[in-house]
Design a protein around this nucleic acid. Structure first.
Length: 497
RNA sequence: GGUCACGUGGCCGAGGGGCUAGGCAGAGGUCUGCAAAACCUCGUACAGCGGUUCGAAUCCGCUCGUGACCUCCA
């Protein structure tokens, strides 16, 4: 299916703050870069939301027929704790606290991150570069920035000269900031005499002799600045100008603003054509963040072992919950909302099971063929309209009603209508939304199923002789063990509660 | 303090000048031995106050409230 046949895709470009038609630089190729995690601690649900957002984008672009090179980095050095380039490296600090090698910290939390991505059915990127694996590229980029006159060395560190850059180029365009306002609002911080302006940021940082993570450079032993990593790696794998750069809202300033400045300084032009930012996950109206103490890990979510959680929720429930909200809006976490999502997802998945077994009506209603096509069209339009997954899901529930009505014999579907629905649901639910059936292992458990079938048989016999006391007792006792029976026209089925 | 968002029915959330999503919860009904599921029907919402307009939840202004960023943050 070619993207050309599916109508234009519109995306909100946060650089222009408008919805724009997406036209790749070199179709059918699309270059996509997303800022990955700094691997110094467990990811929390807020992080998962951003990666889910760009997973949805990645999946939709692929669905449209694009060949996407998706680069999502691992930040394993250079991300500092605390204020204005004076803090300790996050990973080095963690290594000290856990008494491990920095690279053990990196490996440990990278593994954990990958586990979480798998759990939420987030596809792996095409390339997952690490900052420590690209020191040469970063040093080269620092050199280019210095050569262009926008970087200066001070005491073994190299800083980006923001005021000088701002004389000739736009600085603050992405985040809507003005250089004079920034200057007026800068706080005084200690120990920044090395920097000519408080707005300047480190692109190479000198390491003291006790520092574990350091590399030789033309300016002495040190390590790269955080903003520089993304610029160097995106340029290496996607070129000096590429299609889409994504990340969380909170990275807009300073991180992404600095990336733009670095690329313009080093290579002479803006690096990114479409900037996209996912909004935050909030808890009781406040951003989920480790410093707030309101973040929980995926493990806590699933077990329900957290003071904010009334019970555990599955990864797919949470994924569905997130996709029911547009990526650019804040999403507030609550138990009531999660429970609503859990029920809704259950209904969606149940309808897909029904759809698999649906038989064409002997005298189908031809008008329904058109209805199915129109539904598919609306689904595509929703996604093409800035990845409007909540509207897509709303449309899919229209389909759910159609499927269930057909199952009840109230709507007469042709074979073509049924296969159209099957194709639509498979594509949208599994491929695009990235949902999957889960916890089906129980129903697939042959021994358990055999056992339950014995009880279903016994209950059917009791029902046949109108011994409802016995049939109800069987049903109630199974329910108490977490096995729920449902009587349908085709017989009795069971599932775990 | 500066910049920028947002405030939608009981809850979560789309939409965004006239056609008023969807999910969950609730009420009534159909089916069923009963239940469950499913289907049908129902609730008529857009913070407040002004303004623009034939018409505003949607545009503009003000007020109130909330949040994000301005320092590390997905």
């Amino acid at each position: 299916m070619s993207h050309a046949q599916k109508g234009p895709l519109y995306l909100t470009n946060t650089l222009t703050r408008r919805k724009e038609e997406f036209i790749p630089l070199r179709p059918p190729h699309v270059g996509l870069y997303v800022c990955g995690p700094t691997v110094y601690s467990d990811v929390h649900l807020g992080n998962v939301r951003t990666f889910t957002t760009f997973d949805l984008l990645y999946r939709w672009l692929r669905h449209l027929g694009y060949t996407v090179r998706y680069v999502r980095n691992i930040t394993d050095v250079g991300h500092l704790v605390g204020d204005v380039d004076e803090g300790e490296d996050k990973i080095a600090k963690r290594a000290r606290l856990e008494q491990l090698e920095p690279m053990e910290i990196v490996q440990k939390y990278t593994n954990g991150f990958h586990d979480v991505m798998r759990l939420f059915n987030i596809l792996p990127p095409s390339i997952e570069p690490t900052a420590t694996g690209h020191l040469i590229e970063q040093i080269e980029m620092v050199k280019r920035i210095i050569d262009a006159g926008y970087g200066y060395e001070a005491n073994g560190s190299v800083y980006f000269d923001v005021p000088k850059f701002a004389e000739k180029h736009a600085y603050g365009e992405l985040s809507g900031r003005r250089i004079d306002e920034l200057q007026a609002n800068t706080r005084d911080t200690e120990g920044m005499d090395e920097k000519r302006s408080p707005l300047d940021f480190a692109i190479w940082k000198k390491a003291d002799p006790t520092h574990l993570m350091k590399w030789p450079s033309p300016w002495g032993e040190g390590f790269p600045g955080w903003h520089l990593e993304c610029s160097a790696m995106s340029t290496k794998y996607l070129g000096q100008t590429f299609d889409i750069h994504g990340g969380g809202m909170d990275l807009k300033f300073p991180h992404h603003e600095c990336e733009i400045a670095q690329s313009v300084a080093a290579d002479g032009h803006a690096p990114v054509r479409y900037w996209m930012h996912g909004n935050m996950l909030t808890v009781n109206g406040r951003k989920m963040a480790k410093s707030e103490g309101n973040g929980f890990t995926p493990e806590e979510l699933i077990t329900g072992n957290h003071k904010l959680l009334e019970k555990g929720y599955s990864a797919m429930t949470v994924r569905f919950f997130m996709l029911q909200c547009h990526y650019a809006s804040t999403l507030d976490f609550s138990n009531a909302a999660l429970q609503a999502a859990e029920k809704g997802l259950e209904r969606l998945m149940a309808a897909m099971d029904v759809l698999d077994k649906l038989k064409p009506a002997p005298a189908p209603d031809a008008a329904q063929d058109e209805a199915v096509k129109a539904l598919a069209q609306r689904c595509h339009e929703a996604m093409n309209d800035d990845l409007n997954s909540p509207v897509l899901i709303a449309e899919l529930f229209e389909g759910v009603r159609l499927i269930n009505s057909a199952n009840d014999g109230k709507v007469l579907l042709s074979a073509a209508a049924i296969s159209g629905l099957q194709e639509l649901f498979r594509a949208m639910v599994f491929d695009v939304l990235g949902l999957k059936r889960e916890a089906q292992a129980a129903a697939d458990d042959k021994a358990l199923d055999g056992l339950v079938q014995v009880f279903i048989q016994m209950r059917a016999e009791a029902k046949a002789r109108k011994d409802f006391a016995t049939s109800d007792r069987i049903r109630d006792q199974l329910a108490a063990m977490g096995i729920v029976l449902k009587d349908t026209k085709e017989g009795t089925t069971w599932q775990r509660a």
